[in-house]
Amino acid sequence: MSTEEHPIQIPNSTARPLELTDDFSPGETNFIKVDNFKFFYGKKEALHGINLEIPSRRVISFIGPSGCGKSTLLRNFNRMNELIPGVRHEGDITIHGTSIFDPSVEVIALRRRIGMVFQKSNPFPMSIYENIVYPLRIAGQGDRSVHDETVERCLCSAALWDEVKDRLHDSALGLSGGQMQRLCIARAIASSPEILLMDEPCSALDPIATAKVEELIIELKKDFTIVIVTHNMQQASRVSELTAFFYLGNLVEFDETRKIFTNPSKLQTEEYITGRFG
């Protein structure tokens, strides 16, 4: 996939002033559209007909108690759930107006357009450099200068360049937990995706590393649509503009984060965010 096809600009290494992306075109308000989506692990129905429209270049939080289906939905956006045997779905998810389940969609191409960051940082047991180059290599990109450029660009975007530029060829497993997670973010954006999925990206990090990753998320939303699953209410309110509250496989409420946390319209939402259950 060449970069020309990308409607979204690749993040630049120089830091740009923070600006809220209120200028997205109306056509992109339903960038990701979830349409009466049901998901089954074997016989167990984990999602009961979810309807959701996610605009582009925003940070969207999925919150809710464990087992509510938020991670399940997240992992359907790049069809990672298909790796589990015995799963099936009903309904549809479209991105840019194309169904991700359309037979013409190659799942490997889909996953290149949708980066994913996991709960536990999982850099490969290779050098920092090779970790970031991996998405390029598997796509057949063998050009050394492209590699070099991508490594610098992605590490800068992930706010990691200054910390590791002198040891790019050292093992990634020698990094600290927070650095590893930022390396995983750098790797996730190496294939120039449009969407970043984050599955509790900070749950294994200390507060300082968490703050860095959160800063990074806010920085990255200029270029990516970010969907983040989190158990941390403060985090949801800090980084996201929109929040979806899930409970028992249902989408209870989806609204602006400010409204969810100050004046939720559903009782369940209020009880959850005030800590009465969950």
């Binding site: 790796l83 490997i108 191409a109 290149r112 536990k120 999982n122 490969f124 047991p125 998405p135 598997i138």
Partner: peptide, 15 residues
């Protein structure tokens, strides 16, 4: 082999 490696690899679009 940690399944996290497999997830990471599939996650960036590897076959």
């Amino acid at each position: 082999v940690s399944s996290a490696y497999r997830e990471a690899s599939f996650g960036v679009g590897a076959t």
